[in-house]
Design a protein around this nucleic acid. Sequence first.
DNA 1: CGCTAGGCATACCAATCTGTATATTTTTTA
DNA 2: TAAAAAATATACAGATTGGTATGCCTAGCG
Lengths: 188, 188
Amino acid sequence: MPLLSKREQLIQAALELFSITGYSAVGVNAIAEKASITKKTLYHHFKSKEELILAVLRYYDERHRNSFMRTVEAKTENPKDRLLVIFDILEEWFNSKNFSGCLFVRAMGEYPEEGTSIRSVCQESKILTQKYIQSLAEEAELQDADELSEQFMLLIEGAITMAQVNNSHLSAVRAKKAAKVLIKGSAQ
Amino acid sequence: MPLLSKREQLIQAALELFSITGYSAVGVNAIAEKASITKKTLYHHFKSKEELILAVLRYYDERHRNSFMRTVEAKTENPKDRLLVIFDILEEWFNSKNFSGCLFVRAMGEYPEEGTSIRSVCQESKILTQKYIQSLAEEAELQDADELSEQFMLLIEGAITMAQVNNSHLSAVRAKKAAKVLIKGSAQ
DNA sequence: CGCTAGGCATACCAATCTGTATATTTTTTA
DNA sequence: TAAAAAATATACAGATTGGTATGCCTAGCG
């Protein structure tokens, strides 16, 4: 058996292409070719392009949110610091070669129709991230952890957008500064 | 002469369709039909679809940033309050029927290639917004107006994204709360 | 051994895409 | 009023799209 199943090969190839080019701009032919897999096989694993997009988003969500949480917890034990290293991790992401904004937000931008599965997956990912940040705020014994975590989400999403727009990682350090102020204003 | 030039008719029709459906998902045929104008005429005014997109973005930028500034200034005279009514205006926008996220960010998501004119227009629009907020912060005699305005940009862009994701205007009131804390932390 | 499922190669389908050509009519303007 | 510009209607070109059909091959497994 190969290192990656054909299914995973397809997902990874699609992920890379979507990230570089966008969703509707890349065709299934290109994806199949990049994965060195026949289009017939692609449609054996996914019954449509939209299903493939969904699979990519779910794959990406699980992998990268998990990796995000593990990195946070590896960087420091101190609960309050954990809230801040979030922005260091963001900065590293912005500096990485393949950064191109948030895949979920971009997907929602391209498929804005209400009630689609794509929207649900994106919403779910953001909710899970917020809940995780809330749990960090609770461990840090900050009051109003829910509200604080939602405000952190604003800073995070804002930083992602501005990093994408300006091709700069500075938004992450700005967000970190602002986050410190918000924490101070919310200290127990 | 009609109320709107053919050119403006096309731009407005395209703007509406792009906003609902996204950029690459809507074809020039649909735009021409919506504007009740022949495709030949469309290509008489714009030499390609990309040029039309650019014209739409420029049109939208000028109109809506101006309207934004005028609304800020109409709502209150107090400089510090002007910084806060920004978020009331955002909330109204999020509540409006045709809200579908930031057209510029969506455009950059669909056309991520470096160095395109689309990117420049989007960047320029964000810069002008930030400069305006900076001028408000200066009038309010807050220290570090530049840094504060950049942090406001994070809150604004984050609020836009979260409003789009959650289909909710609550992000605006959260951002306003956070903005108050940031202002207090930056008071002269 | 032989069967079956998954994969390959290739060709095809109908629809749609951006952009152009032709030829006629309306509008503007000098 | 006559020439020039802009708009119309329609059709088409050439490429690409998502998705399917056909037929062969090969690897795993009972």
